[in-house]
Design a protein around this nucleic acid. Structure first.
Lengths: 152, 152
DNA sequence: TCGCTAATTGAAAACAATAATCAATTTCAA
DNA sequence: TTGAAATTGATTATTGTTTTCAATTAGCGA
């Protein structure tokens, strides 16, 4: 899987006359091996373990390339920091975000998608993509909150 | 309506020992008389017509107060600029955002809300609020796009 | 392999949106 | 009226991201 995506990236780079560099490889590999919703800061920290003198700017630039190549998805949640996650073609999901611990969960719900398209149609609107985030408290944090409340 | 909301704000201000000032009144009135989804920049421009020497910072601060008082809702779309719209208690809606002309339309779809809660329940997640934005092309811009495509 | 040109890098500066600082001004309760 | 506390506007700081630019590097062709 990673191998394949690596190839896709190399192909993307070659196709537009860009160059393959050590830094790009390190960043791409780190991203492909990772999991979750990572900020540029997260990625920079991770890549530095492999290649200690990689700069922030290079991470930003490479993540843009990964995004453009279709391998990464950019997510902008309410905290204002862009996060990157693996993008799988044809796949789409939305997020549950815990306001207490910050954990991010993914879900798919075809029926919501269907209704979105239906609503858009009412407006003569053509949907290209969408964001749906549910903010609240995850199972663990909700429990904590209730325990706390119980003490009163 | 505006009268009433004005009162709510005055009440809010008094209740926490804050002071009523000319600047705040000007900003609040401008916001209450406005319509749509306004950035701080929009609001600043509008308020300056009434009170030409109001600073940016005061607009930021007052919008925070309007938000805290429940009269304004903060929306963060993908362009990274916070927008404010009127908040009506108990009311909630989502947005259609045109990628071409930037127009923002509102919609309500109870069935989507219901499904959201249902999904959250599957995760043991307690939803506090949510964002749903559909990005794409509005009726007018879609038409323009097609007309353009027809020429080829 | 060498050399050259264009792409890339990292550091630093620039940017944009927002927040915090602070001296001067204003509000409002006593 | 007055004085403590809040507010203002200008400016500076901050945060996340992008751009600039001189130095380095990749990779094609000889």
């Amino acid at each position: 899987m990673i191998r394949h995506k690596s190839k896709v990236f190399k192909r993307y780079i070659e196709d537009r006359g860009l160059k393959s560099t050590r830094q790009r490889d390190d960043i791409v590999n780190t991203f492909l091996k990772s999991d979750g919703h990572l900020t540029v800061e997260d990625l920079h920290m991770m890549v530095k373990k492999v290649n200690s003198k990689i700069g922030y700017a290079t991470v930003y630039r490479t993540m843009k390339l990964l995004f453009d190549s279709g391998l990464a998805a950019e997510r902008k949640f309410e905290d204002g920091q862009t996060r990157y996650e693996h993008a799988d073609p044809g796949e789409h999901h939305d997020h549950l975000i815990c306001l207490s611990c910050g954990s991010i969960m993914e879900f798919e719900e075809e029926r919501i998608e269907t209704l979105q398209v239906e609503v858009a149609k009412r407006f003569g609107f053509e949907v290209v993509n969408h964001n749906l985030e549910l903010y609240g408290y995850c199972k663990k944090c909700k429990k904590g909150k209730n325990d706390l409340a119980d003490q009163h």
